[in-house]
């Protein structure tokens, strides 16, 4: 057996596996196994040791990794595939933008912290999808996590320093409510 033959096929299968990252693991394994069987039985029909040119020809008739992967659609069918693709592309960017906003608003710890949480979550989701810009997703995750921690620290600090005054804050709020509400 020629080792080059395996290399070509293995590389093809590894590429295909990467392209099918979004597929259900069982379905992905099923696709990969049947593609492998297809090539192996094609080569077995030659009745002579297969050369790497034979493997290349078998892979050629299978179609490119992109073509095969494109035949896979998410479970709910082709109808949602197009918007589904447009939406996740914005996910990483949204994470990055929210992370940047949270840095700008760091002097408002509760706001910055909440933005950081959202940026963190969006960034993680985006990172797990293959078609997302990685740098933006990573920015979302790293900066989001930082502002969450910073926000919490500042918030805790503020609670410790201003705790005695919070009572007066509540009474002024309480006063403002009846001032607005008088009605005929």
């Amino acid at each position: 057996m020629i080792t080059g033959r395996h290399e070509l096929l293995e590389r093809y299968l590894a590429d295909l596996e990467r392209r099918l990252a979004a597929a259900d693991p069982g379905e992905r394994a099923d696709i990969l196994a049947s593609v492998r069987e297809h090539v192996e039985s094609e080569l077995a029909m030659l009745d002579r040791p297969a050369t790497s040119a034979d493997v290349a020809a078998a892979l050629e008739s299978l179609g490119s990794v992109d073509t095969v992967a494109a035949a896979w659609t998410p479970e709910d069918g082709g109808a949602t595939a197009a918007p589904g693709r447009a939406h996740p592309a914005g996910l990483a960017v949204a994470a990055g933008v929210l992370a940047a906003l949270s840095v700008l608003l760091i002097w408002l710890p509760p706001v910055a912290g909440s933005l950081g949480v959202v940026a963190l979550v969006l960034g993680i989701v985006a990172l797990r999808r293959r078609d997302e810009p990685r740098w933006a997703a990573l920015t979302g995750v790293v900066v989001g996590a930082t502002t969450v921690v910073l926000g919490l620290v500042v918030l805790l600090g503020a609670l410790v320093v201003f705790a005695p005054h919070s009572e007066t804050g509540r009474t002024t709020d309480g006063v403002s409510v009846p001032a607005v509400s008088p009605a005929p």
Binding site: L20, E27, S61, L62, T73
Partner: peptide, 11 residues
């Protein structure tokens, strides 16, 4: 191409 059948068959 032949390979496009397998994702369908798996589904």
């Amino acid at each position: 191409s032949e390979g496009t059948l397998y994702p369908l068959l798996a589904r």
